[in-house]
Simulated assay, not measured.
Amino acid sequence: MNIDMRSQLSPFLAGCIVTAGLMMSQSAVSTSGVEPATEQMIQQAASNTAQAVVLALQEKEHEQLDKIPDPLDCNSFSWMESCEEINKQAKLNPQAPMRVQRKDGLEFNFPPGTPTPVINAMLNDSPAATQQMIDYLDELAGHHQSLANRYKEQLWAQGGLKNVEMSADRAAAKQDLPKDTIDQSNVKITLLYDSRCAACKTTLANLRDLKDKYPEIPVSAFQFNADPKAVERVKEQYGVAARMLTQDEVDRLRSTGVQVVPTMWIDNPTQKKRLQREGTVSLTVIESELEKVSNYRNGGRG
Rank of each mutant, 00 (worst) to 15 (best):
Q64I: 12
P69E: 01
D73R: 11
F77A: 00
E81V: 06
S82W: 07
C83T: 13
N87H: 14
N87E: 11
N87C: 05
K88C: 14
K88R: 15
K91P: 10
N93L: 13
P94D: 14
Q95L: 14
Q95C: 07
A96Y: 13
P97M: 13
P97K: 12
P97G: 11
P97V: 09
M98L: 12
R99T: 15
R102N: 09
G105A: 11
E107G: 14
P111W: 00
P112N: 01
P115K: 13
T116H: 06
V118S: 03
I119T: 10
I119E: 09
I119P: 12
I119D: 06
N120D: 09
M122V: 10
L123T: 01
L123W: 01
S126P: 02
A128Y: 06
A128F: 10
Q131S: 14
Y136E: 14
E139V: 04
L140R: 01
L140S: 10
A141P: 06
G142V: 07
G142F: 11
Q145E: 13
S146M: 11
S146P: 07
N149V: 04
N149I: 07
Y151R: 13
Y151A: 15
K152W: 02
E153D: 15
Q154F: 05
L155P: 04
L161M: 15
M166C: 04
R170F: 03
A173G: 12
K174Y: 08
Q175F: 06
D176N: 06
D176M: 11
L177T: 10
L177V: 11
D180E: 04
D180F: 09
D180Y: 07
I182Y: 07
D183H: 03
Q184L: 04
S185K: 00
K188S: 13
K188G: 01
